[in-house]
Amino acid sequence: MSQLILDRLAATFTGGELEQIGSQHGNEWARVRRDAWRTVGSFLRDDPACDMKMPTDLTAVDRMTREPRFDVVLHLYSVTKKHRVRLYAGVPEDDCTLDSLVPVWPGLDWFEREAYDLYGVRFRGHPDLRRILMYPEFVGHPLRKDYPKEKRQPLIRRSGFPGKPE
């Protein structure tokens, strides 16, 4: 049912922007070249056959040993046509940036902030890119696979009150 989107994408973007398309477990997905991220997004929103006006989710995956290291994953939905698609963009670790999709779908504001906070992917053109779930004094990006799960960065000293003297 979402094959239509992949067909439209394949028909429109013939210059190598679409690196790979596929379908798995009922989800259709397309891998997009990094510099065509915003073009493909705008097309999907504005094309009347696709009409993907609702952004459902934006997140990142740390593939660890694969190059490029991170995948930014975007899920889109159309309330009129009732179809979905998933888009991937590979982001390397040394140049961890990607175009922001906030000008296309304003609802991705907080989702991109969260991907920046937890994975370190910077979004170019985001109006207010700062940490959202962790506190500003936190150092590092905790959902990366090389961040140990139990490494705490306490914000307040742990002693000096009745029951726990200095």
Binding site: H25, N27, T56, D57, T59, V61, H75, R86
Partner: peptide, 28 residues
Amino acid sequence: GEVYSFTEAGNGELGFYIVADGTGRPWK
């Protein structure tokens, strides 16, 4: 494999995007 599965929770569309790598623990 990877899947995005969505249901209707109390507040709206609750989605689970799971990346599996073949072991007993999810990758994401």
